[in-house]
Simulated assay, not measured.
Amino acid sequence: MTLTKAIKLAGLGVALATLTAADTPALSPQEIVDAAPASAWKDIPPEDMVVIRFKDGTSSVLQLAPEFAPVHVANIKTLVKTGWLNSAALIRVQDNYVTQWGYPDAEEAPLPAGVIKTPPAEYEHTPSKNFKPLKYKDSFAAKVGHVASWPVATDGQSQWLTHCYGMIGVARDVAPDTGSGSQLYTVIGQAPRALDRNVTLVGRVIAGMENLSARPRGTEDLGFYKTPPEGGRFTSVTLASDLPEAERPKFQVMDTDSATFADWVKARANRSGTFFVKSAGAIDICNATAPIRKVP
């Protein structure tokens, strides 16, 4: 074989390899999640999961964020452990905004011992060294990204959790009231990011979101119920760690420091395949919340 022919064949091989790579469709976000190795997932601690069961037989599972709101989360755990929340109910469902729960028959039942009625405002925090920024711009903050799987924003001086779909906040009256945690809400519509740094966020819904978002809308001001529907009343509220091992929900969240998560974010920002005509080339923090799955 002549040198010229060898060079031509080598060039053809490179061209074919390039063509093959170009023709290989990029993995979709769901395909990346499905193929994620076990090392890309982290178990959610049972002591940070709350199971709410409703009178209509449905249930929802919440994950608390003690790293971001330790005082409020301690209050919530006390309310759960003492059984105080067992008589609560869904009291407000405002379309494209929030579902809220608390005591429906009184402004507020007496709080159990150990609950701080007026805790400090846990709206902002010292920036974490573990903050992993997204490269895309945000309308509400200088930078957004993740800390230990939670969606956060920062201005460089402080950081805060963001009001994304499914995030859980502490209902409160006008400032300086901060809310004790006896009434909570979850976002069921477009992310109301203007609430960031104005309300304490304490966690997120990780299962049974449809049992909070698909309820009948309230007919009173701000979506409050005049009389809460029976199906939305609670039968029990329990920490997963207090349930028998066989009854505990077991969930994992994708490690936002993993290469798999970086691939997932890239795929979410650059959607491809037969459906997408144009790729956005960008992603909002609330469209980049860490995937959650049941433990296989």
Rank of each mutant, 00 (worst) to 15 (best):
H72E: 06
S139K: 12
I285E: 07
I7Q: 07
Q63D: 01
Y136P: 06
K143N: 13
V73K: 07
D221I: 06
A106G: 06
G11R: 09
T260M: 11
T18K: 03
A288N: 13
F140I: 04
L64P: 01
G13P: 00
I168D: 05
E124C: 12
V93S: 09
K77E: 13
Y225G: 02
A38I: 04
G203V: 10
D284H: 14
I32K: 08
A207E: 14
E124I: 15
D34K: 14
L3W: 08
Y136N: 06
L134I: 13
D257Q: 11
G83I: 07
S182F: 05
T4M: 10
F140C: 00
R293Q: 15
P25K: 12
G273I: 02
W264T: 06
T4K: 15
G11V: 09
Y185R: 01
T256K: 08
R197N: 09
A21N: 05
P45C: 08
D138V: 12
S28N: 00
A36N: 11
E230F: 03
P176K: 01
I32P: 04
S60I: 01
T289R: 12
V295S: 14
P120N: 08
V14P: 00
V295W: 01
P249M: 09
T274L: 14
S149F: 14
A22E: 07
D155V: 06
Q63F: 00
A40G: 12
V61S: 05
T24R: 15
D105V: 05
T20Q: 09
Q190E: 09
L222Q: 11
G231S: 06
A88K: 02
A171M: 00
S59Q: 14
V144C: 15
G166P: 00
T162E: 11
S279N: 13
I91A: 04
S258M: 07
S139D: 14
R233F: 03
F54H: 10
P112E: 14
E210I: 04
S213Q: 02
M1K: 12
A74P: 01
A15K: 02
D95E: 14
I116M: 13
T178A: 07
V170S: 05
K294E: 15
F140D: 03
G273V: 03
V295F: 04
P70W: 13
L184M: 10
A17D: 01
P25Q: 12
D221A: 14
A153N: 02
N130Y: 13
L19Y: 06
Q190D: 10
W41S: 13
A153W: 02
G273C: 03
H72S: 10
A65V: 00
P66C: 09
Q63R: 06
Y97H: 14
V147W: 07
G114K: 09
S128C: 05
L9A: 12
K81R: 15
W101H: 03
A113F: 06
W84K: 10
E122I: 04
P45D: 12
R204S: 08
G83M: 08
Y103D: 13
M1R: 14
R271M: 15
E247F: 00
V152L: 10
A89G: 03
G11M: 13
G218D: 11
W101E: 01
I206G: 05
F131K: 02
V265Y: 10
